[in-house]
């Protein structure tokens, strides 16, 4: 904490030349969406399933492939070197371009669920009910590929009962307002969302572009302290006329994700 504050206050010494996260210059995964965003266990319904889709991009288009796996370690804070997909994961079947299907009725998954333990060891198969009411984070690993490039990541999806409330739904990205921009000009990127199903949700926006610079990677409609915040960011167009792809990814803080992609012609 002290280090963060110190670095923030002394950031006059932050080195230039490090690539910004908002700049897409290579294989990237900008978000993962689960449809539905939660796995709800209900007595009279079958075991839940969801479709996972990755926003895996390159400056020129989409990634070649994304492999998903259900990690066989239940934790919300995994070791980053966990081999999942790999020996520590159950590969999930493809469900289209850059997508996979997570179906809890998969026999391999059922076998895993029977012996499941949380990382902290406070959970065992016999006492699952209370944990499910709270929500059990299922860890998913993925690996995107483009030629020789690989990008590995984690996504968590919550498995729970309805004790905590109704199932979450993904938010809706309606539009990303981008004025016309000339080379070198700074314009405002304004995300537009659909109405919130739950007003208490805090939206987090992430902005990416293949060229130019964005003033802030993230914006939010409500800060962590509960204050209102502007959701727009500024984008400075590149110095030369070109076509630029811009993305905005919306996360609702409860596993729900949405995104939009826009192509902008810089004059």
């Amino acid at each position: 904490m002290r280090l963060l504050l110190a670095m923030a206050l002394l950031c006059t010494a932050c080195p230039a030349g490090l690539e910004a996260q908002s700049h897409v210059s290579k294989l990237r995964v900008l978000g993962v969406r689960a449809d539905p965003p939660e796995l709800i266990l209900q007595a009279d319904a079958g075991l839940p399933a969801t479709t996972l889709t990755a926003l895996a991009v390159t400056p020129d288009g989409e990634a070649e492939s994304v492999q998903f796996a259900l990690c066989t370690l239940l934790t919300s804070a995994p070791d980053p070197s966990l081999d999942c997909p790999g020996d520590a994961g159950i590969d999930l079947p493809d469900a289209g371009d850059l997508a996979a299907r997570l179906d809890l009725s998969d026999p391999r998954i059922l076998e895993f669920a029977a012996a499941a333990r949380l990382d902290a060891g406070v959970f065992d198969a016999g006492g699952i009910a209370e944990a499910l009411d709270q929500g059990v984070p299922l860890l998913l690993g993925f690996s995107a590929a483009q030629g020789q490039d690989r990008l590995n990541g984690f996504e968590t999806i919550t498995l729970r009962s309805l004790a905590r409330g109704p199932a979450n739904v993904n938010p809706e990205m309606v539009d990303l307002l981008i004025p016309e921009a000339s080379a070198g000009q700074t314009v405002r990127l304004q995300p537009v969302t659909g109405p919130k199903d739950d007003p208490s949700k805090h939206y987090l926006f992430s902005f990416f572009a293949t060229a130019g610079s964005i003033s802030s990677l993230h914006s939010t409609d409500t800060t962590a302290s509960g204050g209102a915040a502007p959701t727009w960011v500024d984008w400075t167009a590149p110095a030369a006329a070109q076509s630029v792809r811009i993305w905005v990814v919306l996360r609702d803080g409860r596993g729900g994700t949405a995104w939009l992609e826009r192509d902008v012609q810089v004059k």
């Binding site: 963060l4 504050l5 993230h218 800060t223 962590a224 960011v233």
Partner: peptide, 22 residues
């Protein structure tokens, strides 16, 4: 004493936004 308001979440930790009071 020090007080900041961070309107835009910090890159390294999107949770970090809002008040920073010490």
């Amino acid at each position: 004493e020090l007080g900041l308001v961070i309107q835009r979440p910090v890159e390294q930790d999107p949770n970090l936004s809002g008040s920073v009071d010490a």
